[in-house]
């Protein structure tokens, strides 16, 4: 098995009735690597994440994750593949407000048998895995873990989202502007926690943001405009 986690080749994508948005001849992300992908809003990064998650389908070219060509899988197989191998952290409001903190963290294991099995192998039970991850991320308080997710501060919520992305050790964590709602100090602290946990889990991290100031913390840094041949010159 190659060491590449994500491989994109000759990828082209356009929304119906619109000009080509993405045209990426080649892109790889190695296992265990952390990558900073810079992209302003409107540059197609959400679409790219959709393609990596198998929610959108490329018009041509190949998207492969762990050597599996996503284009060849049925849509339900893609859904299953995504949750088995990818954890997501979004910009804000990542959590289901009406569930408890711990229930939110456990969600991926409810939908993915693979991640549930992995969590159990390592921690004995899904609940124990959630508790362990939360305490690594500074949310060890059991009373807090039982609270409704929306009773937490934004910073705490993002750490809960990170725990959820990491539970059951997916090979890839995709973070889409997870720090934009945090202040500068909290941003770096959050990133350090995220790196530590990704490393501990052996997960690759694909971090998408427009905030160049964080780029130096990553193994690699790229701009979407450099990757994307369809990008307008102004973006480069």
């Amino acid at each position: 098995m190659s060491t590449a986690l994500i491989t994109l080749s000759d990828l082209q994508f356009a929304w119906p009735g619109q000009p080509t948005l993405l045209d990426i001849p080649e892109f790889t992300l190695e296992r265990g690597q952390s990558l900073f992908l810079k992209g302003p809003s409107g540059s197609g990064k959400t679409t790219l994440l959709g393609l990596l998650g198998g929610v959108q389908q490329a018009a041509s070219g190949r998207v492969s994750l762990l050597g599996e060509d996503l284009g060849r899988l049925s849509s339900s197989a893609r859904d299953r593949f995504r949750v088995d191998h990818t954890g997501y952290i979004f910009q804000q409001f990542n959590l289901l407000p009406f569930l408890s903190v711990r229930e939110n963290v456990e969600l991926p294991c409810r939908f993915s048998r693979l991640r549930s099995t992995r969590a159990c192998e390592r921690h004995g039970s899904v609940a124990a895995a959630a508790a362990a991850l939360l305490s690594h991320l500074g949310l060890a308080d059991e009373a807090l873990q039982a609270r409704r997710a929306d009773s937490l501060s934004i910073g705490q919520q993002q750490r809960v989202a990170a725990a959820r992305a990491l539970i059951g050790q997916p090979e890839l964590v995709i973070a889409d502007e997870p720090t934009s709602a945090l202040d500068t100090d909290a941003r770096e602290a959050f990133l350090h926690l995220l790196f530590t946990e990704c490393r501990a889990a052996g997960a690759s991290l694909l971090f998408v943001s427009h905030d160049q100031s964080l780029a130096h913390l990553f193994d690699r840094s790229l701009s979407l405009a450099e990757l994307n041949r369809a990008a307008t010159p102004a973006e480069v």
């Binding site: 998650g53 289901l96 991926p108």
Partner: peptide, 16 residues
């Protein structure tokens, strides 16, 4: 819609 998108991101399929 947000609730649905979050559920999708943690692996819920459309039929879920």
């Amino acid at each position: 819609r947000r609730e649905m998108a979050i559920l999708r991101s943690v692996g819920a399929r459309p039929w879920h």
